[in-house]
Computed example of a mutant assay.
Amino acid sequence: MRKRSVGINVRVSVTEKRKMTLMAKRCGLSLSEYLRQRALGYEPGGHPPKEVFDVLDKLDEIAEGCTPATGAEIGTCADRLRDLLIGGN
């Protein structure tokens, strides 16, 4: 884990803080991590809702009940969807 020992104080309006907090939450990040990534030139992606991953988990369950070939095909598609949703390749 990195040691962060230096703080940076920035004044913002209540509305600006609300917006930044909302954007961080959408990305699944703390406000500090969101601002750190933005300041360093990264553009954090949005974080899909939990329900999306619940559906993908259900697809995995369905794949387990299928024939090996069909199950493998469904599993591969579910994995591709996961990668797209969380920024994989």
Rank of each mutant, 00 (worst) to 15 (best):
R36W: 07
R82D: 02
E51H: 07
S32Y: 01
E43L: 10
A69D: 15
V52L: 13
V10Q: 07
E64C: 04
C77I: 11
G46Q: 12
L31V: 13
E64R: 15
P48F: 10
E64W: 04
S13T: 15
L81T: 09
A72E: 15
G87F: 09
Q37F: 06
K19F: 03
N89D: 14
R80L: 13
T76C: 09
P68E: 14
G87H: 09
G87A: 07
G46K: 10
G41Y: 06
L81Q: 03
P68D: 13
R82G: 01
Q37K: 15
G46V: 10
R26S: 13
G75A: 09
A78I: 08
M20D: 07
G28S: 09
D60S: 08
L56A: 01
T21D: 12
P49M: 04
M23K: 15
V6T: 11
E51N: 08
G88K: 10
R80T: 08
F53G: 04
T67Y: 09
I74A: 03
E73G: 03
K17T: 00
P44R: 06
I86R: 12
T76G: 11
C77T: 09
S30E: 10
R80M: 11
P49T: 07
E43I: 11
L22D: 13
T67N: 13
R26C: 08
M1K: 07
C27F: 06
P44A: 08
S13G: 07
R82Y: 08
K19I: 10
L56T: 02
L84D: 12
N9R: 12
K3A: 13
K50W: 06
L35D: 01
M20R: 10
